[in-house]
Simulated assay, not measured.
Amino acid sequence: MAVPDHSIDPRIIESARKEFLEKGFEKASLKSICEGAGVTTGALYKRYKGKEDLFSATVRQTVEELYSVASQRGDRELSLMSDEELIKAWDMDHSDMMWWFRYLYDRHDDFYLLLACSEGTRYSRFAHDWVALLTKATSAFLEEAKRRGLCRKDVNPDELHILLSAFWTTIYEPFIHHFTWEQIEAHCHIVCRLFNWHQALGFRTTEPGQESSLSP
């Protein structure tokens, strides 16, 4: 019985990634991808149903890793968090932001594919769907803070989704515009100064000598 030749699989994926990055999904050519990988179209179709299946295979690992880290970071028993921990969860921490930028920069090409080259695939709404996923997770933190009277009570999930969309746009854009790592480092400082979640959501201050403010 013939043993399937898996040695060409990485070549197909790398050729596909290059083609999708240069032309986007809709204009990408399976013929060009096969030529770049040095394989026949028959060999490609033995492995993938078509161009969209190949695009999904190209970004699959990055998508799985993103969703995994989102799940891990949001998986906390909120009832066990102190008031201070809940408030601190909304800090615009520079080191945490740099962690996100580095994490995404290490997956630069696939992240760009998802944001800018996925029209016509199941990932065409990735930017929106990613924010929707994070809104669901973040809403739990906000609802717990509201339940304890730590912040404004009039911020609903739709409002939070809009705010997170604006926030994540500042993360998406450097990748769409092909920022260098040095540019991203400088950009991170600006983003941290731009977003003040404590003020926007009316969180009670924990700074000594300052009055609490929960008003809109």
Rank of each mutant, 00 (worst) to 15 (best):
I87F: 12
H94E: 12
L194T: 09
A140Q: 12
N156P: 01
D110M: 01
E64Q: 15
V3H: 03
E119S: 13
C34D: 04
H94P: 10
R122D: 13
G42D: 09
T180V: 05
Y112Q: 11
S29D: 15
T138H: 12
V155P: 05
Y67D: 12
K31N: 13
D158I: 07
L214W: 00
I12V: 08
E211T: 01
V69G: 02
I190V: 13
G38C: 14
M92D: 04
F179N: 10
S71N: 11
Q72E: 15
R102I: 06
T170E: 10
G120V: 01
H6V: 07
R122P: 01
L214C: 05
A166Q: 06
L214V: 05
S95D: 13
V59M: 11
Y48T: 00
R17M: 05
T170H: 11
Q61F: 03
Q61G: 06
I171Q: 07
G209R: 07
L54R: 06
T205Q: 04
C151S: 02
A28C: 08
S213I: 09
E35F: 12
V39S: 02
A89V: 01
G36M: 12
T169L: 10
E77S: 11
I13A: 03
I190M: 13
T62W: 08
D91N: 15
L160P: 03
I33H: 10
I184D: 05
T138F: 08
I176A: 13
I8R: 09
E22F: 07
S95M: 10
H178E: 14
N196E: 06
F55W: 04
D9W: 04
L30C: 07
A166E: 09
R193D: 11
C151D: 04
S56Y: 09
G209C: 10
S15G: 05
R76D: 03
S212A: 11
T180D: 11
G50K: 05
Y172W: 13
